[in-house]
């Protein structure tokens, strides 16, 4: 396979991913508390259920906010060349994607509240058949990229 692309996404991505992972942790925490209540207040469940859930929650607490974001950030690379966009991501399964520039139909930037908090934005690249995302670029970078890609893609749009 090719050399990986050159550019990395913003380092603040780790913080943003960590924050959203912590927010998602509320779900297993709520489940564990629910199981605890069902076990001891209503005496509906055997105790091993909430202990198992607690163990899973603790593993999740370590892995998804503190280990995964760093690994994911380290793998995430992208590069915009004159005639193609080159993206790499994935922790266990590494995916490299090539999008020919003339196939790009439109480029969007989008930003949720978590990304906005860190002044980051996600870039979405759509072809007629596929959609690709570059997450967590700095706002400046994202809008530059969007303008650059739409400039490059405008050159000689064929049919379809």
């Amino acid at each position: 396979m090719r050399q990986p692309p050159k550019q990395r996404i913003a380092e603040d991505a780790i913080k943003a991913w960590r924050l959203s992972a912590l927010l998602y942790l509320l779900i297993p925490v709520a489940l564990t508390i629910g199981a605890f209540i069902l076990t001891y207040v209503i005496e509906f469940l055997p105790p091993w259920v909430w202990i198992l859930l607690l163990a899973l929650t603790i593993i999740d607490l370590v892995v998804s906010p503190f280990i995964l974001p760093k690994l994911r950030w380290r793998r995430w690379r992208y590069e915009v060349l004159d005639d193609e966009i080159y993206i790499q991501h994935g922790i266990l399964i590494v995916t490299q994607t090539l999008i020919p520039m003339i196939r790009v139909q439109h480029v969007d930037t989008k930003q949720g509240p978590i990304l906005a908090n860190y002044k980051l934005a996600t870039l979405t690249i759509s072809t007629a058949a596929t959609i690709h995302e570059i997450p967590a670029l700095t706002e400046q970078e994202a809008s530059n990229m969007r303008d650059l890609i739409s400039e490059l893609a405008r050159v000689e749009q064929e049919d379809v």
Partner: peptide, 10 residues
């Protein structure tokens, strides 16, 4: 060709 992906796992 709209896009190409290359994948490999460990």
């Amino acid at each position: 060709v709209q896009s190409v992906d290359f994948k490999k796992h460990f």
